[in-house]
Amino acid sequence: HFTSQQLQELEATFQRNRYPDMSTREEIAVWTNLTEARVRVWFKNRRAKWR
């Protein structure tokens, strides 16, 4: 589960860029205190939901 702060950060990034690269995902991981893998999976799932 994600905190509302984490989701806000993830959503804001998603609005700007639906396909963040590795370095962007790592930055998000640092800001949100999540692993890069969790961030990558979140984006994958979010893109699926967005379609």
Rank of each mutant, 00 (worst) to 15 (best):
H1G: 12
H1I: 11
F2M: 10
F2S: 02
T3W: 04
T3R: 03
S4A: 13
S4M: 11
Q5A: 12
Q5Y: 13
Q6Y: 02
L7G: 02
L7S: 05
L7I: 12
L7A: 06
L7W: 10
Q8E: 13
Q8G: 08
Q8S: 11
E9S: 12
E9I: 15
E9L: 15
E9F: 15
L10F: 01
L10I: 01
L10D: 00
L10S: 01
E11W: 05
E11C: 07
A12Y: 09
A12N: 10
A12D: 10
T13F: 15
T13R: 15
T13H: 15
F14A: 01
F14P: 02
Q15D: 07
Q15M: 11
R16L: 10
N17Y: 06
N17I: 10
N17F: 06
N17L: 07
R18S: 06
Y19G: 01
Y19P: 00
P20S: 01
P20T: 00
D21W: 04
D21F: 02
D21H: 04
D21N: 10
D21Y: 02
M22Y: 13
M22H: 11
T24I: 08
T24W: 06
T24Q: 14
R25L: 10
R25N: 02
R25W: 04
R25S: 02
E26D: 06
E26K: 13
E27F: 11
E27K: 13
E27T: 10
A29R: 03
A29E: 00
A29P: 02
A29C: 06
V30M: 13
V30F: 13
W31Q: 14
W31S: 15
N33D: 09
N33L: 06
N33T: 05
N33A: 07
L34Q: 08
L34E: 01
T35R: 02
E36V: 05
A37G: 08
A37D: 12
R38C: 12
R38A: 14
R38M: 13
V39K: 00
V39I: 09
V39E: 00
V39D: 02
R40Y: 08
V41C: 09
V41T: 12
V41P: 00
V41F: 11
V41W: 13
W42K: 00
W42L: 02
W42S: 00
W42F: 04
F43V: 01
K44E: 10
K44R: 10
K44G: 05
N45I: 14
N45P: 00
R46S: 03
R47V: 06
A48W: 08
A48T: 09
K49C: 07
K49R: 12
K49L: 12
W50F: 09
W50Q: 09
W50Y: 08
R51S: 09
